[in-house]
C-alpha cells in the first residue's frame, strides 16, 4: 500500500515513533486518546466530556445501555460522524499524538478502519468488496490486488469458505460470512486501529465465536475498539473496558477490574443487573 499518499504520511512519522526513550514511556502505548470529547446532534448533546485511552494492540470494549452514546463515540474516532449533517464535535481526539481533526479525513479513515453493526457488503462480487479499499487507494496492479484480497480473506478466516466463488455477489453470503467479509474489507487497507460497532449483534453463537477468535488473532497487528451489548463477550475478549451511561464515560479500567471490582456504583448496577 506504499503507493498511497496517506501511508506516506505515516512513514515519515515512523522515525519519530521509534525514538527509544519515548517508546518506552507508558503513554506511547496509547494509540488513540480522547480529551474532553463532546458531541452534538443539532442541539442534542450525545456525549459529555469523554476522556479515554485506547492501548496499542489491545482490545478495548465499550459497554452501556442502549442509547448511551457508544456508537456515537466510536463514530467520532474516524470522523464518520461528519457524514450526518448538523452534528458537531468538541474536544481533542489524538491518533499517535496527532489531532485527527488536522489529519486528512480520508487518510485518517484508512488508518482507522470500521466494521458496522449490520454487515454492509457492497452489492459487488466478494473479490471487488475486499479489493475496494486497495483500488480507491490507487492500486491497479492485478497481481498485487489479488494478493491483498487473498491475504485479507485469510486473516478474516473467510478464505476457505469463499475461495471458489470470489466472483459471486457478496449479498449471497450468510450474515456471519458477510460480517467477516466486512472485516476482511477493512483489513485490506491495513488499518492501525479497527473500530467494531456490535460486530456480532446480527449473528448466531457459532458465527460470533468465529469472529471472537478472529479478533484474538488480529490483536497482533491491530488495535481494536469494540462496542458490545454482550458482557460475556467483553469479558472474554477485551483487555480494557469502558462503561458509558447517558453520554458519559462512567468508568474505564482493565476488564477484570470493571467486572469484578468496579469502583462506581452505576457500573456495578449495570453489570450485576445484566448478569443477575
Amino acid at each position: 500500500m506504499n503507493e498511497v499518499d496517506g501511508t506516506a504520511v505515516r512513514m515519515v512519522q515512523d522515525p519519530t515513533q521509534t525514538i527509544p526513550a519515548e517508546a518506552t514511556k507508558p503513554e506511547m502505548k496509547v494509540q488513540l486518546r480522547t480529551e474532553g470529547v463532546n458531541f452534538y446532534y443539532g442541539k442534542y448533546q450525545a456525549l459529555h466530556g469523554i476522556d479515554l485511552d485506547v492501548y496499542r494492540h489491545k482490545i478495548t470494549a465499550l459497554i452501556g445501555p442502549s442509547g448511551c452514546g457508544k456508537s456515537t463515540f466510536l463514530r467520532t474516532l474516524n470522523r464518520i460522524c461528519e457524514t450526518i449533517s448538523h452534528t458537531r464535535v468538541e474536544g481533542k481526539i489524538l491518533l499517535d499524538g496527532e489531532d485527527v481533526m488536522e489529519l486528512d479525513v480520508t487518510s485518517l479513515r484508512r488508518r482507522v478502519g470500521m466494521v458496522f453493526q449490520r454487515p454492509n457488503p457492497f452489492p459487488k462480487s466478494i473479490f471487488d468488496n475486499v479489493a475496494y479499499g486497495a483500488r480507491i487507494n490507487g492500486l491497479h496492479r492485478q497481481k498485487r490486488i489479488r494478493d491483498i484480497v487473498e491475504e485479507s480473506l485469510v486473516r478474516a478466516a473467510l478464505f476457505e469458505e469463499v475461495k471458489d466463488k470470489l466472483q459471486q455477489s457478496a449479498l449471497a453470503l450468510s450474515g456471519g460470512q458477510q460480517q467477516r467479509l466486512c472485516i476482511a474489507r477493512a483489513l485490506a487497507v491495513n488499518p492501525e486501529v479497527l473500530l467494531l460497532d456490535e460486530p456480532c449483534s446480527a449473528l448466531d453463537p457459532i458465527a460470533t465465536a468465529k469472529i471472537e477468535e478472529l479478533l484474538f488473532v488480529l490483536k497482533d497487528t491491530c488495535t481494536m475498539v469494540m462496542v458490545t451489548h454482550n458482557m460475556q463477550q467483553a469479558a472474554r475478549t477485551a483487555e480494557y473496558t469502558g462503561f458509558f451511561l447517558l453520554g458519559r464515560l462512567i468508568e474505564f479500567d482493565k476488564t477484570d477490574t470493571i467486572f469484578r471490582n468496579p469502583s462506581k456504583k452505576e457500573t456495578e448496577d449495570y453489570i450485576t443487573g445484566r448478569f443477575g
Binding site: I80, T83, T106, L108, M114, N120, R185, A186, V189
Partner: peptide
C-alpha cells in the same frame, strides 16, 4: 446509508463513494 458509510470508512472520498458504490 450503510453502503455510503462502508465506503467512507475505508477512506473513500465522498465523490468516490458516490461514483464507485
Amino acid at each position: 446509508n450503510s453502503m455510503r458509510e462502508g465506503a467512507m470508512a475505508l477512506g473513500a472520498s465522498k465523490a468516490w463513494t458516490i461514483f464507485t458504490v
